[in-house]
C-alpha cells in the first residue's frame, strides 16, 4: 500500500464527474440492486451491496469527507426505504463508510486496483459490523446473522468493485 506524504498538489488529483453521473449512477445502483436478485441467474446478487461499492468509489474519488458522508447518507436512506426495516440503518453505516473512504482517500493512492479491492473488503466488513451492532445491540431487534455470510459479502463487494471501478473511471471528466 503506497502511503503518500502530505503534498498540497495532492488536492489537484480529485476526480470530477458530470452531474448526471452523480444522479444516474446511484439510481442505477439502487435499481439494479433491487431488480437483479429476482433474476434466475443473478439471484446471489442479494449477497452483495452495489450501493455500498458506489459509495466507496465516489468517496475515494472525491476525497471530501463531507461529500462522502452526504452521498452515503442519501443512498443508504433510499436503500432503507426499499426494505421493510427501520429507515436509517443503511443510512448510518454508509455515512460512516463514506466518511472513512474519503478520509483514507486523502492519504492513500486510491488509483491502485489492489488498494481499491482491499478497501472494499475492509469497509464492507465494517459496514456489516455496524449494521448488526445497531440492529441487535442498539435497537434490540431480533436478528439472526451468520458471520461467514458477511465475509462472503465483503469478498463479493470487492469482486464487484474490481469490475465496476474501471468502468466508472471512464465517466470522469478529463482536464
Amino acid at each position: 500500500m503506497n502511503v503518500l506524504p502530505y503534498d498540497p498538489r495532492h488536492e489537484l488529483v480529485i476526480r470530477r464527474y458530470p452531474l448526471q453521473v452523480y444522479t444516474l449512477v446511484p439510481l442505477a445502483a439502487l435499481v439494479l440492486q433491487a431488480w437483479l436478485p429476482l433474476m434466475h441467474y443473478t439471484a446471489y446478487f442479494a449477497y452483495v451491496d452495489l450501493p455500498l461499492v458506489v459509495t466507496i468509489y465516489f468517496a475515494l474519488g472525491r476525497r471530501s469527507p463531507v461529500q462522502g458522508m452526504l452521498f452515503g447518507s442519501v443512498i443508504g436512506i433510499m436503500q432503507d426505504a426499499l426494505t421493510h426495516q427501520a429507515i436509517g440503518l443503511n443510512g448510518i453505516t454508509k455515512t460512516v463508510v463514506g466518511y472513512l473512504a474519503a478520509s483514507v482517500g486523502v492519504r492513500i493512492d486510491e488509483s491502485s486496483l489492489l488498494v481499491r479491492v482491499m478497501l472494499s473488503v475492509i469497509l464492507s466488513l465494517l459496514s456489516s459490523a455496524m449494521y448488526i451492532f445497531i440492529v441487535v445491540q442498539l435497537l434490540g431487534l431480533e436478528k439472526q446473522w451468520v458471520w461467514w455470510t458477511e465475509i462472503l459479502r465483503g469478498v463479493g463487494n470487492a469482486a464487484l468493485a474490481l469490475m465496476l471501478y474501471p468502468l466508472l473511471d471512464r465517466l470522469q471528466v478529463r482536464d
Partner: peptide, 15 residues
C-alpha cells in the same frame, strides 16, 4: 407481476 425487491438478504421483500 413481481417487479423488484429490497436487494438485500436482510430484508426479504418483493414489489
Amino acid at each position: 407481476a413481481v417487479i423488484g425487491g429490497s436487494g438485500t438478504d436482510h430484508s426479504r421483500v418483493i414489489y
